[in-house]
């Protein structure tokens, strides 16, 4: 999977599963302020990413630093790369 394909899959999953609008899905969008997600959504976000990419997410440090949609893209890209290596 290329990085662009990963980003596209994340964004499609978020429109389908979170009913977010595609046009709002800018990498700089803040999850809590712009996309109106909250702490209760974190578990569902983990569920969506785990099922889209077939990996398990632990409460790693890098997930706690996620603020924007772009952070999610990078988190998944890094995780995918780490699994390949």
């Amino acid at each position: 999977m290329t990085d662009a394909e990963i980003i596209a899959l994340i964004n499609i999953s978020l429109t389908e599963e979170f009913e977010l609008k595609m046009e709002d899905l800018k990498p700089e969008a803040l999850l809590f302020d712009d996309l109106e997600l909250d702490s209760l959504d974190i578990v569902d976000m983990v569920v969506v990413l785990e099922s889209a990419f077939q990996f398990k997410i632990r409460e790693e440090e890098s997930i706690r630093q996620i603020r924007t949609l772009g952070d999610i893209h990078n988190f998944v890209i890094n995780k995918k790369n780490a699994l390949l290596n």
Binding site: E17, F18, E19, V43, D44, V47, V48
Partner: peptide
């Protein structure tokens, strides 16, 4: 609920 939560 959002689809993700329903499915969960």
């Amino acid at each position: 609920f959002r689809p993700v939560y329903r499915k969960r």
